[in-house]
């Protein structure tokens, strides 16, 4: 019989497999996969033990337990987007530095070229 519990366990496992496969094929760098793997493991734990969420919600005085799931999901997205903007910042700095070095080198080369002719 198919129910949502079984589905979510299947989905979590599949999610983890996809992430690990992407890393294996070098489509995803290990350093960027860590947050995703963490997310996949959390998903799996929650799917395997639904009572966990209900207990946690009870401790935190959240009446509607699934709200806790949404909160976790949202926070995870925020953290991940922050992580991505850090990566973009570093990348754009590196690209700029490369562009500058290239521009200066190109200038040097054209002087040498003119001297040869």
């Amino acid at each position: 019989m198919i129910n949502i519990y079984l589905l979510s366990i299947l989905f979590s496992v599949l999610f983890l497999i996809v992430i690990l496969e992407l890393v294996r094929r070098r489509k995803l760098k290990e350093q960027y996969s860590l947050l995703w793997i963490l997310m996949g493991i959390l998903l799996l734990i929650i799917s395997l033990n639904v009572r966990l969420i209900e207990k946690l919600a009870f401790w935190l005085h959240i009446e509607y337990a699934p709200a806790l799931l949404f909160l976790f999901g949202l926070l995870f997205c925020f953290v991940f987007i922050l992580h991505l903007t850090l990566v973009v910042t570093k990348l754009s700095e590196q690209v700029l530095r490369l562009t500058q070095e290239l521009t200066i080198l190109k200038g040097k080369e054209s002087i040498l070229h003119e001297r040869d002719h």
Binding site: T99, L102, K106
Partner: peptide, 25 residues
């Protein structure tokens, strides 16, 4: 006059800094 051309538009900061790198080197 000597001219260095950036391969694309990088903005004033990155352009200015190219000049300072050139001056330093």
């Amino acid at each position: 006059t000597k001219v260095l051309s950036m391969p694309f538009n990088v903005g004033i900061g990155g352009t200015m800094q190219t000049g300072y790198i050139y001056a330093r080197d």
